[in-house]
């Protein structure tokens, strides 16, 4: 089987961009200088303040799934330019740039993997591809991941990381929200578990569709979550936002999250939740 070649290359390309490749790394939250190898061993969580660095989809696969392996599906899906969209850049140029920068074909990787022996349909979003935005490709790949769970009768886990729907595909992006949510209704009818994992950030169109529809919803600490972006809210109401507004902790307090889970405990937590929900 073709184990996941593309992401491996994406991994190294991305590592250069997001994560400083020096011997030491400074935590953006508490300014602690950390030995990079130690940081890596701690899954990119600051040992001092527990700040969760943003990491690539490839890294999540490496520590969440058994043997760090995902049998990837639909890797060849690529965006087209149905609207011939142009702002400061033409959309096809933007896509090409994102592919080069991230080593990914779009903002989500989907496939079949295992967590402690339990086979799951797995999808992981990647912020390095146009802010993890959802256009036709992301919508279609998520839709197929849901259908794969239904067809095989296995649980679904989606790890979200997205600024929302992709503007460059306008109404087509918006409709991916309806498409994925409608299929989740079918998954629910089959009584198959869906665990939604939210990472920093998960907002707008993704948060207002599949990310909010898990049977169980868990988030990494201090992730930015919500429908509207903080800047838009600030402009609308014309006042400063309270500290911690729209964080994971805020949403848990308001009753919209089941649990906040540190990255180092994510795999064990998912395994336990699968044990409880995968009743077949």
């Amino acid at each position: 089987m073709d184990w996941f070649k593309k992401t491996k290359t994406g991994l190294s390309a991305q590592a250069k961009k997001d994560i400083p490749d020096g011997l030491w790394t400074k935590c953006p939250e508490c300014s602690e200088v950390i030995y990079t190898k130690q940081l890596e061993a701690r899954l990119w969580v600051c040992p001092e303040c527990r700040y969760h660095f943003r990491i690539t989809s490839g890294k999540y696969i490496s520590f969440l799934l058994d043997d760090g392996r995902l049998e990837e599906y639909d890797a060849n899906l690529v965006s087209k330019d149905p609207l011939r969209f142009k702002d400061s850049k033409k959309y096809p140029d933007r896509i090409r740039g994102a592919i080069e920068k991230s080593g990914l074909n779009d903002a989500v990787i989907c496939g079949i993997g295992k967590i402690k022996g339990v086979e799951i349909s797995f999808a992981i979003m990647d912020f390095s591809f146009i802010g993890g935005s959802m256009g036709s490709v992301v919508g279609e790949k998520i839709a197929r991941a849901i259908e794969r769970a239904i067809d095989r009768g296995i649980p679904l886990i989606i790890v979200s990381c997205s600024g929302g729907a992709r503007m460059q595909e306008s109404i087509l992006s918006l409709m991916q929200m309806a498409k994925t949510s409608a299929l989740l209704a079918k998954l629910a009818e089959k009584r198959l578990p869906y665990i939604s994992v939210l990472t920093n950030p998960t907002t707008a169109g993704v948060m207002a569709s599949y990310a909010s529809l898990g049977d169980l919803i868990i988030a990494e600490p201090k992730a930015l979550l919500g429908f509207a972006g903080p800047r838009v809210i600030q402009q609308t109401i014309g006042q400063d936002l309270p500290p911690g507004f729209q964080s994971s902790e805020f949403f848990k307090e308001k009753g919209f999250l089941d649990k906040i889970v540190e990255r180092s405990e994510l795999r064990d937590t998912l395994a336990l939740l699968l044990e409880y929900t995968n009743h077949r």
């Binding site: 639909d74 899906l77 036709s136 919508g139 279609e140 087509l172 409608a182």
Partner: peptide, 9 residues
């Protein structure tokens, strides 16, 4: 809704 989307494969 399932069929909405434009992509290459």
């Amino acid at each position: 809704f399932r069929k909405i989307g434009v992509y290459g494969e």
